[in-house]
Structure formats: structure tokens, C-alpha cells
Design a protein around this nucleic acid. Structure first.
Lengths: 343, 343
DNA sequence: CTGAAAGCGCTAACAC
DNA sequence: GTGTTAGCGCTTTCAG
């Protein structure tokens, strides 16, 4: 075999580089430098001469070099990755939560791995496993409605991976949680009803086994305190809410209270079906993320439980944990009354 | 230094393992096996004896071993990761698209990295870079409304990383795209209006610079073919749609056509404000993802442009590319008319 | 049936 | 100012 002229070797090298991904090694070979010099040059390390830095960065740019995140993470054992578990992303509460978390992640140079459980514990478990395999730095989790075994989550904590539960949180009080202020929201709504001198309210709640339902109902009850006639109904879906509302309208209530957006959507359909004018014929007030109430005219008055704000809070709580805070806490976002024209 | 009894060594080893993450090395040391044997045992390799397999898997389970995804990916140079770029996840079209893609990813053992651009080209660029660093296997991309430079995307293709554009796609026809059938949808809506013998329609479109607007308008115009009186209006937001609709109602149209959910939401607010009964006083028909139309009574008749279906289509298109198909194509999802009671 | 060894791409302590 | 070296955790020939 004859020795090939250097020029040809260089060309071959160049071709190889173009074909595959650029690596430090390839850059170093092309420049006749060591890998570490190239690495440092790219990081603008003070040890490296300006001349070398220039040569390196120019070639790196020309070859569109991007560091291999897997290699960096493996080496530094820092992943800058958060996991985020939701029942589904296709939901106007969760999607705004996700939007907020993603925004913050980008600002803080974290990546986000978003996983859907479909509200199934088996998939939830799979997803937690995936998170562990990816060596996430922390997890934002909304448990499924049937989750009983918290062990997989607690194990993460054991591995020094903070878990911030949001929205649907376990009762266990050794966990970090961020929630909407269920009790306060319901209280504000109830007080608004009383202040407006309403006399006969139909209060629509969700599945009565859900803790969110229990909390909101309890607070609502206390605030109303039997001062006015109240009919409490439980709907498991938007369709059921519509049906129950339609039935309850026979008794001519003067106010409809809806504990959530799903319920509100059903209730408003019933109101439209009955051709009632809001607020003349009937007043409406809801607890809501804010999107649905603004679809109607007049806009529905609601107590805001913002997924977006909750996301921001969850993120800051996560950062606090990562910064070493071992103080387990349950945080809530402030509830504010957003006035529409429906009461 | 004295040699320590084996029992103590084992205990120390065990402690170390508990403190940190379990690795193949640690398992192999505890069992007196080589790393490769442990690796193979865990993969149920036929070479390994059942006895060894049992010992290994038992310890691995006890220690909650999960393979380090970064190491696996680095070693195998297979990431099983897709990137997904959207303006925002907090949108009822994109969130259902994402839900569909995520579902399929899970089934096919892929992970998904979801990034929001906030409709800003600068962030879009950052996100593409992130994708490259993570050595994604493919990208689902919805470009920002101001994206002019397609080069970053084309470079991915150069690296054998397929890019499937969806929803907001570039004009360039060397790209793989999946879209809703804009023209067909608008045609179906127009024909439905004609078939119902409507005479005076107000057609509400979005920003007239958007290609989606142009396509839908052109097809709508052709289908209507000046057979009936048509007023075309352009709204840049839900609020503007409401305002324009309110003004247009003065002329007593018998039908409202809305080219999208954002427009529909505004138009319906105007209808409610004017206390018009649908469909007695006015008919309504829309192009929609399906969520908003079902909030009203009667439900709005719409031509479905499903984000969910688009997601499924995008995924299968991605898999085709990965399987080696170099056939660049623009796919569309079928448009179906979903009948409500609004026309 | 099991082990040794190389190497994926990168960082960082240590040498010179 | 630059190079050498070891090693992150894993897979996978190749030997035995």
C-alpha cells in the first residue's frame, strides 16, 4: 500500500465528517489538536489561546457541531431533565400547566419529558420507569384517579429526585404538593352568591369520590351555612351535568354554581336549551381555569384556578427542592374572582 | 491496612449501592460476576444459565435497577426520541395533536421532547438546536408564523433526521407535510350552506395573510360561486370576530360561516349578545377541531379538522420515513361533516 | 456458559 | 497553552 498524499487524507476525513455527526474527535483530528483542547476552546476556557479558539470555533460552526447531550449527561451525571406526568395533555387545565412549566424549563436550561397516563395506573408505572431510566432531575406528577400505590413515587424521593405533585395529589402528607385553593375558591363563590342576595341555588359538583369534590363541597356548604335553599348535585361528566341541570331547572333556581369547567360546559348547554337569559332569568358562577367562561355572553363570573399559575408555582417549588430545601410543603395558588356579567 | 472480613465488605458494598444509583457494575461486584454476564442475564440472553439469570434478576429487582438511558443511547447511538415543536401546547388543536403523537410514541417505545416556540423564530431556532443536541430520531414541526429560514430544518434532513411538518407548514415542496384538508373542508361547508337553501351568508375568516386563510377562502368562494349573497370578513382574533359579527348582524344574514374555532367562539358570543336563536334566527356552520361546537345548544354543525387524527397521521408518516421511505409527500386528513343542530 | 476489552462522546484532573 | 488519561454506564465482539 502506498502512503497517500496528505491532501487526499484530509479530503477523506472531511467526507467522513460530513456523512456522520460531527464530534470533538473529528474536529481535533482535522485541526491536529487534542480532543480536550477542542473541548475547552468551545467552552471559551481561559487557558486556550485566542488563535486556537478561533480556529476551533470556525471549524465547529462550519461542520454544525452540536455536543452530544447523551455523552455530556453521562459524563457529568447531570441530565437537566424533568419528567411531567399528566392523565392527558388534551385538557385546558393541564395544557396551560404544561405551557407554564415548559416556559420555565427553557429559561433555566432544563428539558421536559411529558408523559400521559391516560388515567391508567399501569401506564403511570411505565412512565415512572421511563423517568428513572432517563435519570430525571425531578418529576411533576398528577396521579391517576385510581392510583393507590405511592411507592414508585416515594422511591424517587429516596433517590434524591424531588417529586412535585399537582392538581390530583395523594392524601399522604409527606409529599410536596401544589394545588389550587379548593376550599378558598368554593368559599369565594358561595360568598359571591350570598352577597348578590340569591335565594335558591343549584350547586353542581363532580364525582363525589374525588377529593377535589369533597373539599370544594365542604367549603361551599360551610360558607352557605343553610342561609339559602341549596340543591347539591353530582355529575360525572359534562353530559351528565347538562342532564342534571336541565332537570333541576324545573324548580326555578335563581343561581347555578359549577365546581369546574367540565360541569360549567354542561350546565350552560342546559341553560341555552331552556332558553334562559343570563343573568336575568338565572345567575351562573363557576370555578374555572378561565377559558370556557369567556365563550359566553355575558361572560361567566368565575373563581380562577389557573393551570398556568399552578405550573409556575410547581416549577419554583421544584427549584427550591433542587436547591436543597427539604421542607415538605403543600402550596396553593391564590384564588381570584373574575367578574363576568353572569351574576 | 488489614484485610477486612468479606462480610463487612459486602455490607459496605450494599450501602454504597443503596446510596447511589444501581449500575451493572455494582450488581456484578456483589454477585462476583462480570459486567457483561449481568448485562446479558438481564436481557435474557440464551447463553446465560437459568441459575445465573435468576440470581441477577433477583438482585436487580431488589436494588430497583433501571438501565441508564443516556449510556444505552450513547453506546447504541439510537435515541428513540422524537422532537415536537409547537407554538404553544395550550391550544385545543395542538394539545390533541400532541396527545395522539404521545400515545403512538409510547406504543412504539419512543420518547417525546415537546418544545414551545411561543411563535418566536429565535426560540424556534434554540429548540431545533436542543433537538440536535439530543440526537433526536425525527422531528414533528409546526413553524412559527414568521419563520422564513428553513435551513435549520433542512439541515436535519441532511443528517438523516426526518422532519414532518404539520398544521403550519412551509410552502417549500421538498418537505414532508401533514395537513388538514383546507380546501375540501371549506368546500364541504359551502356546499352544506347551499344545500340548506341559505341565501345570505356572512363568512368569517382569519388573518388574510395566513396561507390557511387563503386556501379556505379560495375554496369557499369557488364552491359558493356567487350563487348567494356573501359577505367576507377577516378577524385577527376571537374578540375581533365577535365585533365584526355583531356589526354584520345588522344586515340580517341567515347564516354565519366560521373558518376556525377562534372565529367561531367570537361569532357565537355575538349571536348570544344579539339574543338570536340558532338555527331559527340564524344558522351557523364552522370548521373546527370539535370541542367548541359541542359547548353550545344546539351543537354547531362543523367540518372536522381533528388535531388528534392529524397527530396519528403525522406519526405514521414519520415511521414511514424512518423505515426508509424517501418519498416526500404532503398528506391530508379526511374532512368529515359533523352534524349539529345549527343549520 | 462466562469474562476481558474496546469504545460510544464527552469532561476534568493532572502533567508538562 | 496544550496533551494525556481515566472514566461516566452500557453493549458487543472476541476469546476461552
Amino acid at each position: 500500500m502506498f502512503a497517500k498524499p496528505i491532501a487526499v487524507n484530509k479530503l477523506i476525513l472531511q467526507l467522513i465528517v460530513i456523512m456522520n455527526n460531527t464530534t470533538l474527535k473529528k474536529i481535533s483530528e482535522m485541526l491536529g489538536l487534542s480532543i480536550s483542547t477542542v473541548s475547552r476552546a468551545l467552552k471559551n476556557h481561559p487557558d486556550i489561546s485566542d488563535k486556537t479558539k478561533l480556529r476551533v470555533t470556525e471549524l465547529a460552526n462550519a461542520l454544525d457541531y452540536e455536543p452530544n447531550a447523551n455523552a455530556v449527561h453521562l459524563r457529568t451525571s447531570k441530565n437537566n431533565l424533568f419528567g411531567l406526568l399528566v392523565p392527558t395533555v388534551a385538557n385546558f387545565f393541564y395544557d396551560s400547566f404544561i405551557a407554564a412549566v415548559e416556559e420555565e424549563c427553557r429559561k433555566s436550561n432544563y428539558s421536559l419529558m411529558i408523559l400521559q397516563s391516560g388515567d391508567e395506573p399501569a401506564i403511570e408505572l411505565e412512565n415512572i420507569k421511563l423517568c428513572r431510566q432517563n435519570r430525571i432531575s425531578g418529576l411533576f406528577a398528577c396521579i391517576t384517579s385510581q392510583t393507590v400505590d405511592l411507592d414508585p413515587y416515594l422511591k424517587l424521593n429516596g433517590l434524591d429526585i424531588p417529586v412535585i405533585f399537582f392538581d390530583k395529589v395523594p392524601d399522604d402528607n409527606t409529599c410536596n404538593k401544589v394545588c389550587v385553593a379548593d376550599a378558598v375558591s368554593a368559599t369565594i363563590a358561595a360568598n359571591t352568591i350570598l352577597k348578590n342576595k340569591k335565594k335558591k341555588v343549584v350547586a353542581l359538583f363532580g364525582n363525589r369520590n374525588l377529593s377535589i369534590t369533597k373539599k370544594r363541597l365542604a367549603a361551599f356548604d360551610i360558607a352557605i351555612n343553610r342561609k339559602i335553599k341549596t340543591t347539591v348535585l353530582y355529575a360525572n361528566s359534562t353530559a351528565e351535568a347538562e342532564e342534571l341541570t336541565t332537570q333541576s331547572l324545573i324548580e326555578n333556581p335563581d343561581t347555578l354554581f359549577c365546581m369546574s369547567d367540565e360541569i360549567l360546559a354542561g350546565a350552560m348547554k342546559a341553560v341555552q336549551r331552556a332558553r334562559l337569559l343570563v343573568p336575568k332569568d338565572i345567575s351562573v358562577i363557576s370555578i374555572s381555569n378561565g377559558f370556557i367562561p369567556k365563550l359566553y355572553f355575558p361572560e361567566i363570573t368565575y373563581v380562577e384556578t389557573s393551570g398556568y399559575k399552578l405550573g409556575k408555582l410547581a416549577f419554583s417549588s421544584m427549584m427550591a427542592c433542587l436547591a436543597g430545601s427539604t421542607f415538605v410543603q403543600e402550596l396553593t395558588i391564590e384564588s381570584v374572582l373574575v367578574k363576568g356579567g353572569s351574576i
